[in-house]
């Protein structure tokens, strides 16, 4: 059995993403993968495809028609809204799309959402991963109007609304560790980083997000290029800050004053444009503690999203436990 879907419309920055590739940064290839790793994991968990891939959507949303079969889906992240044939638009929605039905997805308060399907489709892979590097198109691929996908072994999912991850709402502070090139900034810049509120602007893509705030002008930008990591706060020659995201350049000659801890990179990427926040400067040991605490909390939350088993599976397991129901009535 197969289910076939067609993108009738897709906003810019619609891509296929898996969890990302490792080992190729040395050749200029960043990890790519989802900008919001937690929402991505939620969509996969809710569709029972933990090692699979999902469509990453941004502000343009998308419109999908199911042309054959029926297939379960989950939409997670950014408060994006899904409706089926014009029913009540709902965020964090799981359900089943049937032949002839249209799934419309529109942006919510955040910037990124993940749409996973409960079926099998071998997306194109590059260097061991289907994560799409958006500017080259290498990997799973860029989605546009007319893109069509066939899924094998599609499964239906019970309609439900998933619980978004705690804590709700965009954060007021984000944790950063100084460096690796804070020595290329005057002491006053470090003080400002800690004391001034910054703004998440509307200028972003998969490579990075520009921040609004006071210029943190480096003392020099003549350093030899050094490796860069997702989460680095990079200053250009005029002191403008950009946070590096999933498709970041792997090396850069602009100094990085500080680096966000992993979970907070994704929260910054999802902030609505205009949202202000401050940076919380912590040492690497505290950063490790917070990152591990967040990972444990996220894992617990993800377990709570596991797709409920189908009714017949539940009855079968209760038969095994109770041992009293005999289908033949003997």
């Amino acid at each position: 059995m197969q289910a076939r879907i067609l993108f009738e419309a897709a906003g810019p920055l619609t891509t296929i993403q898996d969890r990302g590739r490792t080992g190729a940064m040395r050749f200029g290839v960043p990890p790519s993968g989802p900008v919001d790793r937690l929402a991505f994991a939620a969509a996969l968990t809710a569709t029972g495809a933990a090692d699979g891939w999902a469509f990453e959507l941004s502000h343009g949303g998308c419109l999908i028609t199911c042309h054959e079969g029926a297939i379960g889906f989950a939409l997670c992240g950014g408060g994006f809204l899904a409706d089926i044939d014009g029913d009540e638009p709902t965020a964090w929605r799981a359900g089943t799309l049937h032949t002839g039905q249209r799934l419309r997805i529109r942006a919510g308060s955040g910037n990124w959402a993940y749409l996973a399907f409960a079926g099998q489709h071998a997306a194109p892979r590059w260097l061991g991963s289907s994560a799409t590097h958006a500017s080259s198109g290498l990997g799973g691929g860029l989605i546009e109007a007319g893109s069509a996908y066939a899924f094998d072994a599609p499964r239906a999912l019970e309609p439900r609304t998933l619980a978004p991850p705690p804590p709700s709402g965009p954060p007021d502070s984000l944790a950063v560790v100084l460096g690796p090139q804070d020595r290329h900034f005057p002491a006053d810049a470090v003080r400002q980083l800690e004391q001034v509120r910054f703004t998440a602007t509307s200028r972003f893509d998969r490579m990075g997000r520009v921040l609004g705030g006071p210029p943190l002008v480096p003392t020099s930008i003549s350093m030899p290029s050094e490796p860069a990591l997702r989460g680095c706060l990079q200053a250009d020659g005029d002191g403008g800050l950009t946070v590096l995201l999933a498709d970041h350049q792997t090396t850069s000659g602009y100094p990085k004053i500080a680096t966000l801890i992993g979970p907070d990179v994704d929260r910054l990427a999802q902030m609505p444009a205009g949202h202000t926040f401050r940076f919380d400067l912590i040492d690497p040991h505290e950063a490790l503690r917070r990152s591990r605490t967040a990972a444990a909390a996220n894992a617990a939350w993800l377990r709570s999203l596991t797709a409920p088993r189908r009714l017949d599976e539940r009855l079968w397991s209760s038969n095994l436990v109770d041992g009293v129901i005999d289908a033949n009535g003997a």
Binding site: V177, L229, L260, S291
Partner: peptide, 12 residues
């Protein structure tokens, strides 16, 4: 040795 966040280190 320069830490980069909690998940990388730069040997400079």
């Amino acid at each position: 040795v320069r830490p980069i966040g909690e998940s990388a280190v730069l040997i400079d």
